[in-house]
Simulated assay, not measured.
Amino acid sequence: MSHLSRTLPIKRAAHVYLVRDGELLLVEERMDDGSIFYGLPGGKANPGESLADAAVRQVAVETGLTVTDLRFVSLLEGEMLTGTRNECYANFGRFTATFHGDLDPTDPEVVGVKWVPFAQVEGLIRYGPPPEVEERNPLIWVPTRDFLRGEARTYYPI
Rank of each mutant, 00 (worst) to 15 (best):
M1G: 15
S2D: 12
S5H: 13
S5G: 07
L8T: 09
P9F: 13
K11L: 14
R12V: 10
A13P: 11
A13I: 01
V19W: 11
R20N: 09
L24Y: 04
L25V: 04
L26F: 02
E28P: 03
E28D: 08
M31F: 01
D33M: 09
F37G: 01
G39Y: 00
G43N: 04
P47F: 07
G48I: 00
E49G: 00
L51P: 08
L51D: 12
A52K: 02
A55F: 13
A55D: 09
Q58H: 08
T63W: 01
G64Y: 08
T66L: 03
T68N: 08
D69T: 08
F72N: 05
V73K: 07
V73M: 01
S74E: 10
E77Y: 14
L81F: 03
T82W: 13
T82L: 15
N86F: 07
N86A: 14
C88P: 11
C88W: 01
Y89A: 09
Y89H: 15
A90S: 10
A90L: 15
N91E: 08
N91H: 14
F92I: 11
R94W: 12
R94C: 00
T96A: 13
T96F: 04
A97Y: 03
A97E: 11
H100V: 14
D102V: 15
D102F: 04
L103P: 02
D107T: 07
G112Q: 05
V113C: 00
V113T: 08
K114R: 15
F118I: 12
F118Y: 13
V121R: 11
E122Q: 02
E122L: 14
G123T: 07
G123L: 01
G128E: 14
P129W: 02
P130H: 07
V133L: 14
P138M: 05
P143K: 08
P143C: 08
P143Q: 03
D146P: 12
F147H: 10
R149P: 03
R149Q: 12
G150W: 02
G150I: 01
R153C: 10
R153W: 08
R153M: 02
Y155F: 06
Y156A: 03
I158W: 03
I158C: 06
